[in-house]
Design a protein around this nucleic acid. Structure first.
Lengths: 221, 221
DNA sequence: TAGATTGTTAATCGATTAACAATC
DNA sequence: TAGATTGTTAATCGATTAACAATC
């Protein structure tokens, strides 16, 4: 892998947004973009954009900007969204269903190959074409299939147990939608998606909103 | 409102996690916690925890720690999750359904009173007890009901239009699940939930994972 | 009293922003 | 050439961490 660049996390988190924005511009027939333009669209300082992009692709042209096509290629390659990533999803409730059926993830290389669930009513059915298997088959399935990622969409109480199973089976990353801090002995990549906490931040802003605010408070992203 | 304290955003984002953790400890019968303990559980520096908590509630006791009950009360009050917040949800697809049906939001004071949707098949039905109305009724509904928050769970292409409607109708906060940057003329509180971008960050970590990592990489939260 | 643990000040770290020479 | 816009260095800002006197 030629990609031995260590990026600050905030930079890494902005890259997908650059990618999405320039993809939109490309679809609109545009060929180059400037840091100024990206910054304006994404509420970022242009210097920030230049710094970020220069870290992964120092090929902007002074006086002209960035060529969209090669930049898009580079971002895709760098983020690693081009290569397929097999994943299993644990939990076939409302949220699990939404995740299994969301078409947008495909674009980022995610391929959910199986869903695991405890409710016998659901086992044997399909979720948008993905088979729902019994949670008891999880270990077995992971042993037989090369799966990089586990997505946890079970209630908080069950998350730790599921995470341990996934970790033990050699999954390398966990995308956790349960509101729990996972304790893992192995060094896994974990990303927590905590909607409840995010909602609480919104509630905080609502409560503490100054009566005259003159700028839209864009919290995160 | 006595709460005229301005908190750094990172601090505000940690508060819900403190709240959840100490709630768990309380349910386990515990009466006090130390910053040390909270830090260990949440992967935070104890000094960070003390600093955060001292900003909203300087009532920890040296040698003893924090009394859970009053701290919990204070966090609830401060975050504003105790008071009910009426919201409308726009979009009754898979994600919208998951959001409408998720029982956990209730705890943070969220009350979704109506869902709006364009698909005539869904209009007139209910989502976990919440009526699904035609999107054309949105303006009207907002005019007649005092709604603080709009939740956007429509496809990216429709998000901007919906956001403008919500803003025009006087909603004060938007929780946006569509992968779009909203451009609003009014100063609203906006929180973007961008699952695609988060997935891309995971993909990035998977691609650039050093072969021997000795610490679990907990990205965000 | 001795041990634990706070709140806070000061030191460190890292990210963002400003400035500008280089260059298309 | 003049105007636009880059990549990068230096300055600024803000958040995290360390240290410790105060105190339970």
């Amino acid at each position: 892998m030629q990609n031995r660049i260590v990026l600050p996390l905030p930079t890494a988190e902005r890259l997908p947004r650059y990618f999405r924005y320039i993809s939109e511009r490309k679809d609109a027939g545009q060929h180059t973009v400037s840091s100024e333009e990206i910054g304006a669209a994404l509420n970022l300082d242009p210097a920030q954009v230049r710094k970020d992009l220069s870290m992964i692709w120092g090929k902007g042209r002074a006086g002209i900007g960035y060529e969209i096509q090669p930049l898009q290629d580079r971002l895709e390659e760098f983020l690693g969204t081009r290569s397929e990533k097999k994943a299993v999803l644990v939990g076939a409730g409302q949220l699990g269903t939404a995740l299994a059926c969301y078409p947008g993830f495909h674009r980022y290389g995610l391929r959910i190959t199986a869903v695991f669930e405890r409710d016998p009513e659901k086992i044997g059915t399909q979720l948008c074409g993905i088979p729902v298997l019994s949670e008891e088959e999880l270990d077995d399935y992971l042993e037989k299939n090369h799966v990089l990622m586990g997505i946890i969409a079970v209630p908080a109480g069950a998350a730790q147990r599921v995470a341990e199973k996934l970790a033990a089976a050699g999954v390398r990353a966990i995308w956790n939608f349960a509101p729990t801090i996972l304790r893992l002995s192995k060094p896994l990549i974990v990303r927590n998606e905590d909607l409840g906490a995010d909602l609480a931040v919104l509630a905080y802003h609502l409560t503490h909103q100054s009566t005259e605010e003159d700028e839209p408070e864009q919290t995160n992203q």
